[in-house]
Each structure stands twice: as structure tokens, then as C-alpha cells.
Amino acid sequence: MTLYIIKRILLIIPVVLAVILLVFGLLYITPGSHMDRLAVKTGDSFDPVLDVIAPSGGFFARYLRYCYNMFFKFEFGSGGRGVADISAQILMRWGWTLKLAGLSLLLSALIGIPAGIISAVKSSGWQDRTISAAATVLSSIPSYCLAVGLALLFALKLGWLPSYGVTESGSLVLPVITVSAMGISQFIRVVRAAVSETLEKEYITALRAAGLKERLVVGAHALRNALVPISASLGETATKILGGGFVAEKFFAIPGIGFYLIKAVDQVQPVIILACASSTAVVLVLINFCTDMISLAADPQMRKRVSSRAKGGRRDGR
């Protein structure tokens, strides 16, 4: 088991390196990209973009130097046009992004999971119909449209909450609601499917036949089993929330990584784009690692298989 987890952690490193290589490579080979405008400005004939990111050497030397600087010195390249301390910016902005994403994930789970369970248990009753309809509507409203509505109502008309920046208190409320709308619908869909599938299983009938109370059958057995598919899709949900957070950051001017990235794209700052992309790759891989571990904890069958395989034993499937 421990062996498996260690293996899994070691596997993170090549994935991160590969993603950075991909972005780095794209930056290197794409001719005629708008990065060239920067080249013209600096007036250097030889790959000025990469010179800024990691000076001198061939492609792989630059790539390795970049990775080395990033992981061991936490440096993302030397400036650019008037760009101050990228490392500090990256740190500060990830703080906001993670705060926004974490709160949204929490709110989505708190509302979405119970709603999904009710929807599955009361299948095709009025509760189910209402909740499913709400989920469809929530997933159909683009996040920025919802943000427009929320900002108009709570910030402009009622004046209860700020809709711009993070200087005032309560400034994360509207962004969190915006991102959660999508997260809630995602959770409802996943949880409803998982729980209703579990409730159809034969062992649920067998447990009822053994005289277990309905509350125990649904509350302990059905939910426990539904946890396996739910945790398997947690990574996808978290990724979606992170992506949705980028839009909310831009709309509500939260100084997170998404806002930073979009600004860098606007102002053509490849150093920052690369820094944002690389750090996002690291975060995504970590998210997936965490959700994989949660799935592992949720599924005893997988746990057994994993530990027997890690020991070098045969796969015992069943």
C-alpha cells in the first residue's frame, strides 16, 4: 500500500515535466505566433522569448534550466517588460485561486451532495423533478451571465456585497456563488447517478431482506457504495471548478492565477503565461493525485488489488 502511494508520488514528476515540456515546446516551435511581436520589439534575432525565460543554450538545455529554476529556486524566468517578481505574484495569486476554488468546492458539495441523494432516493417524485430541473438550469447559465445578474442585484441595486476587487470584506461571496452554481449541478448529476445506480443493486435488496432498517440500508450501505463512483469523478469536478474560477476571477477582479493569466495573454507576456501554465500543471497533477487517493480509500476492492500488486503478488481480481 505505502509502496503504491510512493510509486504514485514518484509518477507525478514525469507528468509535470512532460506538461511543461509541451508548453515550452509550443513556445519554441510555433512560428508566426503573436509572441513574435515581442521579438520584434526586443530586436534580437535569436529567440528572444526563450532568452527571457531561460537565457542561452539549446532547446533542452533551456528547458532543463527552466525546470531546475522552477522547482529548486522557485524562479519563473527573469522578468520581461517591466514584470516584477513573478514568483511572489504566482504564490500570492495561487493563494486567492485556491481559496476561491476551495470555498466553491465546499459550498457545491454541501448543497450538491445532499440534493443529489434526495433526488436519487425520491426518484421521479416531485423532489427529484425539482432538483433535476434546477441542476439543468444551473448548468445552462454561463458563469459570467450569472455573475452579471448577481453583481447587478447584490452589488449595484442592493449594495450589500462588493463586485470588484478583494479590498472589502465579503468580496469572495459573489465569486464563490458564481463558481458554485456550476459545481452544484455537477455534484447533483454525479451523486444522483451514483446513488440511484447503487440502489438498484441486488445487495440492497438482500440487505432489506435481512431486515435492516431502511435508514441503515440507504444511509450506510447505499451511500458508502456510491462513494466509489463519486470519488472517482471528484477530480473532474475539482478541475471544472478551477476552470470556472478563472472566469469568475476575471469578472470580479479577484487577483488569482486565472486573472493573472488572462491579463498576461492580453498584454503578451510569455514569461508569465509559461509560469501560469507550469504552475497550473503542478496543481492539476496534485489535485488528481489527491482524488486518486480518495478513490483508493473509498474502494476496498481497489485497495486490495493495489496492495497485492505492489507486493509483486498476482492480481487477485475477485
Binding site: 445487495y203 431486515g211 466509489v228 476492492q301
Partner: peptide, 23 residues
């Protein structure tokens, strides 16, 4: 619920799927 399991019990066709895999 009090009769099920105590007075009348049941066994099923497929023992593969009649036991909760997580318990």
C-alpha cells in the same frame, strides 16, 4: 422490517452481487 430477516429470511440467486462489496 421486523419480520424480514427474523421470521422470514431470503437467499438469492447470485451470491456474487448479493453482498455489499464495501463491507
Amino acid at each position: 422490517e421486523t419480520i424480514r430477516g427474523r421470521d422470514i429470511a431470503m437467499i438469492f440467486q447470485d451470491p456474487l452481487s448479493s453482498l455489499d462489496p464495501c463491507f
